[in-house]
Design a protein around this nucleic acid. Structure first.
Lengths: 201, 201
DNA sequence: AATTTTAGTTAACAGTGTTAACAAAAGTAA
DNA sequence: TTACTTTTGTTAACACTGTTAACTAAAATT
């Protein structure tokens, strides 16, 4: 009897239509403003049916998170296979990673929990400029007292802040409590590498 | 007449008490679950009074964001002044940055818009492991075909991912639309530095 | 003392996620 | 075909959220 099979198929289609409607909303208004009610409205069903297919709203977002990681992995693997030399592969992967993030912003923000607070505001916060100013001047001083005084300080500042923020936020995503003290080794490693790249060419 | 002055002072105190109550909530339940109603409840006033002191909820969070950047800047400047050599300063600043982030998690998450999605879940997502697996194996291969085969691949993987995520998320916070193509120079710079640190010692 | 200004309140609007209680349709068994 | 059971879907509500209009009571000014 194919009835059971049809039912499973229909259920699967229903589930897919929920995700489709949800994704459409994420694309138009961002995942912050995704709501169960709007999904229900879009698929022209009442609200509780959605809870027959997903435990809660988070489960729907989790689906997209998984999808995002899958797509990213596929993209990375594809460019990796274009090269044989590991160092070339790492470079290609890095560029593919960057491209994925900005071509699929919604996915990326979901995957790494980027809340995007004031977003455009952040730039205008005087206190932030004060902080970054400290970093910038220190880097300028480091460059000035090195062999390679033509180094682009603004580029290096951006790299410096990115490394720090990347290390911190990756650690925060993965662990809830305090980080292992050993994690400072990673910081040490990354920063000493950065400082070398700053002073010698 | 000191009446006007007293009024201003009282208004300032009121404002401060709102922030105090709000911060207490942020500390106990995280800034995600901060609500105007709970603040009003804590200061034992009705809800609309809060809107006499802050335009909206975001304005309250912005206050903490500024406060956070100020505190971070102070912390960085303090450790910077302990050293004279710029490279030492950059190293000290990096460690102070890390320490601040984890000693003041709430501030940091607010400042950089870390939404913290599934948080603990992210680790268990198979699709993420699949992606990171690609990175890890590539790094292992790069190390294997280098002069320094004892390099800690897991440390290097963590650094690699952190650099990438840091670059991407800093860029996303600061710009809304597509990034400047020149920003790829920063990526190029950071990654080539990383690859060097991977193969030569 | 009358009037204006300020401070603070209640009550509502328009949303949100989630769920209990119920009705209708579909499938199963006699 | 009829009676029963299961699935599917709906209505209506609960408990929240940010925000604001309309009003009252207190304080300051004239």
């Amino acid at each position: 009897m194919g009835i059971a099979e049809r039912k499973i198929r229909q259920k699967e289609e229903f589930r897919a239509s929920i995700l489709e409607a949800a994704w459409l909303q994420v694309l138009t208004d961002g995942w912050q403003s995704l709501s169960i009610r709007k999904i229900a409205d879009a698929i022209e069903y009442s609200i509780p049916v959605i809870y027959n297919h997903f435990e809660n709203k988070e489960a729907i977002l989790l689906e997209f998170t998984k999808e995002g990681f899958q797509k990213l992995a596929d993209a990375l693997l594809e460019v990796k296979n274009k090269y044989t030399e590991p160092s070339e592969q790492l470079e290609a992967i890095a560029h593919a990673y960057w491209d994925f993030a900005f071509e699929h912003k919604e996915y990326y923000q979901l995957m790494f929990g980027l809340g995007i607070p004031a977003c455009e505001m952040v730039n205008q916060i005087a206190e932030m400029k004060y902080m970054t100013g400290i970093m910038i001047t220190t880097i300028q001083e480091a460059i000035a007292s090195s062999n390679n005084t033509e180094t682009n300080y603004f580029l290096k500042y951006h790299t410096y802040l990115s490394i720090l923020h990347g290390l911190v936020s990756i650690e925060m995503i993965q662990k809830v409590g305090k980080p292992d003290p050993e994690k400072k080794l990673i910081l040490q490693d990354a920063i000493s590498g950065f400082i070398k790249s700053l002073t010698i060419k």
